[in-house]
Write a protein that binds this DNA or RNA. Sequence first.
DNA 1: CTTGACCTTCAAGCGAACTTTAACCTTATC
DNA 2: GATAAGGTTAAAGTTCGCTTGAAGGTCAAG
Lengths: 139, 139
Amino acid sequence: MKIGELAKRSGLAASAIRFYESKGLLKAASRQSNGYRDYPPEALSLLSIIMDAQQAGFTLDEIKRLLPTDAAVWRHAELMTALRDKVADIEVLEARLAQSKAHIQSLMALIDAKPDDMDCQANAARVLASLGAGREQPD
Amino acid sequence: MKIGELAKRSGLAASAIRFYESKGLLKAASRQSNGYRDYPPEALSLLSIIMDAQQAGFTLDEIKRLLPTDAAVWRHAELMTALRDKVADIEVLEARLAQSKAHIQSLMALIDAKPDDMDCQANAARVLASLGAGREQPD
DNA sequence: CTTGACCTTCAAGCGAACTTTAACCTTATC
DNA sequence: GATAAGGTTAAAGTTCGCTTGAAGGTCAAG
């Protein structure tokens, strides 16, 4: 399989695949007689793994460290540790997102709760005051 | 208030504050006779808002579009729409994170479930096969 | 009157993950 | 044999959100 086909089937750009190779995530593909890269079908699974890992929040460097050069020699303990760590990372992110969401929603509620007799400017002041409260850095 | 104090109290670097000004998030501060920037106390609230918005996932450009140049003239409808959109974005992210987490956890389970009589290499193959399944791009 | 902590500007650098560009080669089709 | 659609490389450019550096001006203390 040439790089264009691999790109199409994986959904990645060919340039991205070459980039991964240059970064050492993919071992250099074998070449056809004309110099074109020639990929085995397994390359597609490997790209899937990389894309999954990325989507899970691993950086390319982390992925590189975890992907075995030789497909059969996984560093089992390291991999499990990394996976566990990443789940913990995700949980931190989830908590932060939940907080941000709550924050935005309370802000929307605050804005909506403008008393009928209050003008926009006063409402803005009220909202701003509530936002600015309690965020000063301690000395 | 000079920039150093504002930096300390907001928790931002002075360079970041200048950067925000250069990007148009902050209107140019007035200057003391020596040319130093001189900030009113409200600058602190404004920085808080910016920091909150960033933490909620707004880019600096989005924040700039939403922050009123004149502190009293909020584009109410636009703001509410942006907030609603951002909550939707956060929910998408939450779903993706949950999926990534589930994915990683099932991967860990799969790895752990290695039959006692299977060697590492065969287990690796089993795990890889399960990972690569069903991800091909439709033509 | 020198030291050091601040402040100023403008320009360049960083890191992540790619993409784009330029210059060139290969293969298939009209 | 011209053209278009692919492939090759190396190097430079992009975006985001800043930081760092160079080359200064300002100000209080010793």
